[in-house]
Design a protein around this nucleic acid. Structure first.
Lengths: 139, 139
DNA sequence: TGCCATACTGAGAACCGTTCTCAACACATC
DNA sequence: GATGTGTTGAGAACGGTTCTCAGTATGGCA
């Protein structure tokens, strides 16, 4: 099935949420998605946005990320296998590819007896902009 | 400093929270910690438990984990570098060591310009018990 | 075209985990 | 004992999310 062939009725509200998510590169929270969707669908309610995000995640059309220390979930329309990089200072979240060593997943499965293993890998650090702004200046 | 030398006054309430956390192997939520602490300190309030957990995390005496799809944070008194394994069916969380390939962190830092990188690695799968209970039985 | 069953919507209440506020208390120091 | 500081417990408040429900839109069918 193509990315368009969602297993749910594609109402204008749902299309708007999907469009906002696909246009976003900053891993918006549900509240941010709601905000952006309201610009094109002013009458939409927050329940609809939450419901739609949940459906999209369930249908594999979006990913939900819960990042340490952040109360609100973030959403990502990039459903390709990828990892995340999080700035501890400004909270920015970026996508990155940092595949695990070959065999690590199989090794973990063999050691633990778990089946159908997948993983989430999140890097934490200080982004270049925050490094620059926090660098100690000469006195 | 030793594990006992916490940078805060060690009141009976704080000791009880720390004891509960150290005795736990199941990554309890704050509510679960509260529940267990109340068995030994019946008068303790939830605010004290949340405050203490926050202090312990800030002091490096405990780790806070926020796991995808679970609204409540979980706590872990094992502050050694380790990863986690999460059962998608029963929600059990286990500790595991699955170190990243040498140089991956440096590679990510070099590629992205981020500094002071650390990471969280969480595996998802079906634990042996859930596998057994969900195995299709012959008709 | 009209009817029906079903799915979807928006508003707001409810819920849950967490944090805040504040008066009372405990403790160390003098 | 007086003082200052940090801690406590109760409960209110908060933010994010889900639930409820009446109204509406949609698709299938005759």
């Amino acid at each position: 099935m193509t990315a368009e062939t969602v297993d749910l009725r594609l109402t204008p509200q749902r299309r708007a949420v999907l469009d906002v998510l696909r246009a976003a590169t900053d891993h918006p929270t549900a509240a941010e998605v709601f905000d952006r969707v309201r610009r094109v669908q002013p009458g939409i309610g927050s329940a609809t946005v939450y419901r739609t995000l949940g459906r999209l995640v369930a249908a594999g059309q979006a990913l939900e990320l819960t990042l340490d220390g952040q109360p609100a979930a973030r959403f990502d329309a990039n459903t390709e296998r990828h990892d995340h990089l999080l700035c501890q200072s400004c909270g920015a979240a970026a996508d990155i590819h940092a595949p695990l060593a070959d065999g690590l997943l199989a090794d973990v499965a063999a050691r633990t007896g778990y089946a159908g293993l997948s993983y989430d890998l999140v890097f934490h650090g200080l982004c270049p902009a925050c490094r620059a702004s926090q660098a100690p200046s000469a006195p």
